[in-house]
Amino acid sequence: MSVLGPRGQAFLWALTLRLVPPAAGAPPEERARSLAVADGALGRRPPAVRRQVRLFLLALRWLPALGYLRPLDRLGGPAQDRVLAWFQDSPLTPLALGLWGVKGLVYMGWYGRPELGERIGFRPVLSGDEKSRGG
């Protein structure tokens, strides 16, 4: 079952587009798979962690409204980046850590998919390399 729900997933995808620009070209099935990986991983974490992540996503979406009168995902790209950088460098450790956690979720969804390996130059060969037979 989805932890984030459709709205949470839509927001996570909006973040994905800022954090991982190549995701903009992703076809719908790739977007779905990336979100499923992130949501699924969150589902395996303890309930307290799930709650914290959901809460932080809410804060990340709506705190910018205090300054910009709009939630994060309704801002232009550069403004979104400024907000994300502000969270990342925040002297308030919980805000910096919260963003680090959410980035982790996004990167898990995007880079944690084995099928991406070829595209980014990560090509381990499971049965090994005939050339390098250490030991």
């Binding site: 800022r18 954090l19 620009p21 880079y111 991406l116």
Partner: peptide, 26 residues
């Protein structure tokens, strides 16, 4: 390290991050 762990340990995001991650073989 592997793609997800590497991505999580780079501090930053956006085009630079993606450029680094897109060059895992370098």
């Amino acid at each position: 390290y592997f793609p997800f762990v590497t991505a999580r340990n780079l501090i930053g995001f956006g085009a630079d991050h993606a450029a680094m991650m897109g060059a895992m073989d370098r």
